[in-house]
């Protein structure tokens, strides 16, 4: 854990225009870490992630990628973005390979056509997410979970240092969630650093190595999964945070004790069904 951080935030604020949505964030992301970024709707986790990607404004504090200020030239290619599925246009036909290969574009000048090496990286990214047999399939014909994996492959193809994922498991059925979790576990084993915005910790059990919790624009928890379990158990019924988040795992954490459930799963599985 002593290696130099990929991302380094000290007192960083992000927002839109003049308005800071997340404030005073201290966060270091080190190589090989898989961080789950939790928080209720409106807590600012999307803004934080969008800030890292240059899609929201950096309004103050230190934000560095490999020691260089965020957004300096060529910087964004080292952060691979995995958006939610709906950001992909479905108005034209495109194959998995065609979509994934766009992840390589920022790595070469506009006038240079793709090389053999671009094609190789594209192919191995597709194989890494378990879609090797669907490389020539149309993206629109794939299931929601498979489309999510196409977006992961696109970010992988860009050879980023860290993948930033926006709710990769949201709206994906159970069987596909399991495949997705397997893919993420495989990426983790290969040393991929990931920052995952999520509501559903259950689906990522065993993959996540650290949990960061945002509430009302500030970080209110940062630690490993075991500490997170204790953190939740230490909160009385109707605790001050997560109380807006009624849709997923944390809704009933105060009434269902940790005993008898998985360490990352304060809610029994049947509650999801």
């Amino acid at each position: 854990m002593n290696s130099a951080p990929i991302l380094h935030l000290r007192g960083a604020s992000f927002g839109y225009g003049e308005i800071a949505v997340v404030r005073e964030v201290d966060l270091d992301v080190r190589p090989g870490e898989v961080i789950a970024l939790l928080g209720p709707n409106g807590s600012g986790k999307s803004t934080l992630v969008r800030g890292l990607l240059g899609l929201a404004d950096h309004l103050g504090g230190v934000a560095e990628v490999f020691g260089a200020p965020l957004g300096s030239n060529g910087q964004h290619t080292s952060i691979g973005y995995v958006p939610q599925r709906h950001s992909l246009s479905a108005s034209v036909r495109a194959t998995v390979t065609e979509v994934v290969s766009t992840g390589r574009l920022p790595l070469r000048p506009w006038w240079r056509p793709g090389t053999r090496s671009d094609a190789d990286h594209t192919r191995s990214a597709i194989e890494a997410v378990g879609l090797g047999d669907r490389a020539r399939a149309e993206v629109a014909a794939l299931s929601g979970g498979q489309q999510r994996r196409v977006l992961i492959a696109r970010a992988l193809a860009g050879e980023s240092e860290v993948l930033v994922m926006d709710e990769p498991t949201a709206g994906v059925d159970r069987a596909s969630q399991e495949v997705l979790a397997t893919v993420l576990a495989r990426l983790k084993a290969a040393g991929t650093t990931m920052l995952i915005v999520t509501h559903e910790l259950t689906a990522l059990e065993g993959v996540v190595s650290r949990i960061v919790c945002l509430d009302r624009g500030v970080v209110d928890f940062d630690g490993d999964p075991t500490a997170y379990g204790e953190h939740l158990a230490g909160h009385p019924v109707g605790g001050h945070h997560h109380d807006e988040d009624t849709e997923h795992a944390f809704a009933s954490r105060a009434t269902v004790p940790l005993a008898g459930t998985a360490p990352l799963d304060p809610t029994p599985r049947r509650r999801h069904e």
Binding site: T77, Y81, S87, V92, E98, T102, P106
Partner: peptide, 22 residues
């Protein structure tokens, strides 16, 4: 013809294109 992949990337997913520095 020269810019077709970049047009495809930007038109297909503007947010990803912006985040990746295009």
């Amino acid at each position: 013809l020269v810019l077709r992949q970049r047009f495809f990337a930007v038109a297909g997913d503007e947010e990803f294109a912006r985040a990746s520095g295009l």
